[in-house]
């Protein structure tokens, strides 16, 4: 995978200490949120385990020997949650789903792809959409099933698709 282009803040030691000054902290958290989302997007990752993340290069800059401690990590993650980019999977906040695109955005992306291939009014399985050969090269290829489902639900709400459940296999029909 191509090298991630780290922002300048990543090489700035104070970036890894939560700043007490409100103005400064706002800027800092903004930078962190952008960094986390772009990094996840770059790595095509949708889930984040807090314990694992502590030692990942995202939160631990080995060159600087600086890391974001657990409290600070939660501050950043909570900030992401407030912005609607993150959802906790459990109450203990040990793992979360990161949404660097909102379900609606994903839905629109899928719908336009379907339209461009004239696949309206056909039924396809969720597996076909995210893992199928046809969708290789698309952004939503390899999309987390949970997010995919939510994207389709948002389409359903708009009346552009319908999620069908047959024999445990889920499929979707686009209109």
């Amino acid at each position: 995978m191509a090298d991630f282009d780290w922002p300048w803040q990543y090489k700035f030691p104070p970036f890894f200490s939560i700043q007490p000054n409100i103005e400064t902290r706002k800027k800092q958290l903004e930078a962190w949120c952008t960094l986390v989302l772009t990094y996840q997007k770059h790595m095509k990752q949708y889930n984040l385990d807090v314990n694992e993340a502590q030692n990942s290069e995202l939160f631990y800059n080995k060159q600087l020997n600086r890391r974001l401690n657990l409290d600070a990590m939660y501050t950043v993650l909570e900030e992401l949650r407030k912005r609607g980019n993150l959802e906790w999977k459990d109450k203990n906040r040990s793992a979360c789903t990161l949404m660097w695109r909102s379900p609606a955005e994903w839905g629109n992306m899928i719908y336009s792809w379907i339209s461009s291939r004239a696949m309206n009014n056909t039924v396809c399985t969720l597996f076909e959409l995210s893992e199928g050969e046809d969708s290789v090269g698309q952004d939503f290829h390899g999309l987390d099933k949970g997010i995919l489902l939510r994207a389709l639900k948002s389409l359903e709400a708009e009346g552009k698709a319908e999620v069908i459940d047959f024999d445990g296999n889920e499929g979707v029909k686009f209109f």
Binding site: W8, Q9, F12, P13, P14, F16, S17, Q19, P20, N21, E23, T24, K27, Q28, E30, A31, R66
Partner: peptide, 27 residues
């Protein structure tokens, strides 16, 4: 100075170090 946004802190086990506040000036 930190309170006024002039500098920002880097807190490590070695101690508290203050840096120019690039968050506000270069961000």
């Amino acid at each position: 100075t930190e309170k006024m946004g002039g500098v920002c802190r880097d807190e490590t086990v070695e101690g508290l170090k203050f840096y120019p506040n690039l968050f506000l000036t270069a961000g």
